[in-house]
Amino acid sequence: MSEHHLKTPLTDADVEKLAIGDVVYLTGTIYTGRDAAHKRLADSLDKGEALPFDLKGALIYYVGPSPAPPGRPIGAAGPTTSYRMDSFAPRLYGLGLKATIGKGKRSQEVKDAMVKHKAVYLGATGGAGALLSQRIKAAKVIAYEDLGPEAIRELSVEDFPLLVINDCRGGELYVQPDLASALA
C-alpha cells in the first residue's frame, strides 16, 4: 500500500497508479454534490444543457457540509453514504469524471463503470467532519444555491486525506462480512 500526493484535475495516469488500500493526499479543486444536486445534473444532461463545472478529470465529493461559522470557509465536511448516488455515477464517469469521494459500498454498475472509464472511488472517514474540515481552505457555492447544504460547492483542498476503496482494475477494499462465522 503506497501513499500518493495528487493534484487536481486527475489524469488517466494518476488513476492507473492507484490501488486499493493506497492513501491519497489530494490538493486542488473538488466539487460537492449529493442527492438533490445529482438529480439536477442528470436533468441538465437530459436537456442538453451545460453542467455547472467541467467533468473532465474532475472529482465529486458526496458531502453536505454544515454552515460555515464566522472566520471559517466551511463547517464540518465529512462524506455522506455513496450508494444513493449510484444511479447517477456511471453516466458521470462516462463523461470524464475521474473520482467520486464518499463512504460505503458502491453497486456493481458503478464498479464496472470505473473499470470501463478508468476512474476510482475514494473513501473519506465518515463522522470525521471537523477533522476533514481543516483540510478545506476555501468553499464557494457555484450552482443550485436554493438546495442549501445540498448546493454544489467548489472546494479548495490541501492534502485532503483519502483511501482508495475501488480502483480502476475492479479491486475493492471493503471487507466481506463473515456471516457464517458470526451465526455459527
Partner: peptide, 27 residues
Amino acid sequence: AAKEIFRQLLENAALAAETGLPLCQDC
C-alpha cells in the same frame, strides 16, 4: 487501518471540542 480510524475519530472529537465545529456535518 482499524487503529488509524480510531485515532482519527479521537482527533475529530478533540477538534470539535476545540473549534466548536460539529463532530459530523450530518447534525
